[in-house]
């Protein structure tokens, strides 16, 4: 991808070799290519290190997939950002100052091959993003369908400004969200009043809570640890405080917790 786009704009006219070599040896072109490499590298580094550093612990496949997309889309955007920023910077470094306009530049009205290459390049980029997204959406839907039988169900109710969780199979009702590790879980989400959005942060999933209808999301926690449940839809006065603790725990711990809450384990 990177190499392809590099050639797409830098190798301007698709003409015989010596013209191309001469073009690349031109000062401004050489500088632009250097800048291109630098900018592309910067964006790749940003993608590689920033998001993993910022994002919370990854505790489900969905969260992993969100992070992967953010990193990889940064990678594939990097050469495009590189082209745009290197051309802009090269031009910026050529700047003309003073109170009279600069001399006229070359009268380049358009450049057919470049426009076509650019469009095809962005089309390819778009197709990659779309196909990636569709495959991922599909695999999440397939996983949800496959896991339906083995999953535990948690009924989530958003009320202004608290979450409550009902575990019908276990017969318990709580205000914090505890889940067993490695067991698929289906959240049936609804609201007792206005719209909320159920967001167990470390699990990387989210769905709105609406009155009178149940929305469903699915995940499988993959590691043990603390999670935070937040509301991601402005819901009035204490929207900010509509957050609660939770945890993904080993099956033994989960069963012990259910028993302590007065519920029954399968």
């Amino acid at each position: 991808m990177a190499n392809h786009d590099d050639h797409a704009v830098e190798a301007l006219p698709p003409t015989p070799g010596e013209r191309a070599t001469g073009f690349i040896k031109r000062n401004d072109v050489a500088r632009t290519i250097g800048l291109f490499v630098a900018y592309t590298a910067i964006f790749i580094i940003l993608g590689k290190y920033f998001y993993p550093k910022w994002m919370p612990t990854i505790m489900s496949k969905e969260m992993k997939s969100a992070e992967t997309i953010m990193i990889w889309f940064t990678y594939i955007s990097a050469p495009i950002a590189g082209i745009v920023l290197s051309v802009a910077t090269n031009s910026f470094l050529n700047a003309h100052r003073g109170d009279t306009p600069p001399p006229d530049g070359p009268a380049i009205r358009t450049n057919g091959p470049i426009v076509v290459l650019w469009t095809v390049g962005s089309l390819l980029f778009t197709i990659v993003a779309i196909v990636w997204g569709l495959l991922e959406v599909n695999s999440q839907a397939v996983a949800a369908a496959n896991d339906a039988k083995s999953a535990i169900t948690v009924e989530v109710t958003g009320s202004q400004w608290l979450w409550t969780f009902n575990y019908p199979a276990q017969g318990i009702e709580t205000h914090d969200l505890n889940l067993p590790v490695g067991v698929p879980v289906i959240f049936d989400v609804k609201s007792a009043d206005v719209n909320h959005s159920f967001w167990p942060v470390q699990l990387g999933i989210k769905v709105d809570a609406n009155a009178q209808v149940t929305t469903v999301i699915h995940t499988t926690p993959t590691m043990v640890g603390a999670i935070e449940v937040k509301c991601a839809e402005l819901c009035g006065l204490y929207h900010a405080y509509m957050e609660t603790n939770g945890a993904v725990m080993s099956k033994t711990d989960f069963n012990a917790w259910v028993t302590a809450q007065g519920g029954h384990t399968a």
Binding site: Q160, A192, D193, V194, G236, Y238, Y241
Partner: peptide, 24 residues
């Protein structure tokens, strides 16, 4: 921390959570 009342006592509004409940 914060505390609030969970009983819908903001009369005349959707889910009775407006007015006094929304005022803080």
């Amino acid at each position: 921390y914060v505390w609030n009342c969970e009983y819908p006592c903001g009369d005349g509004t959707y889910a009775k959570f407006g007015a006094v409940m929304g005022a803080g």
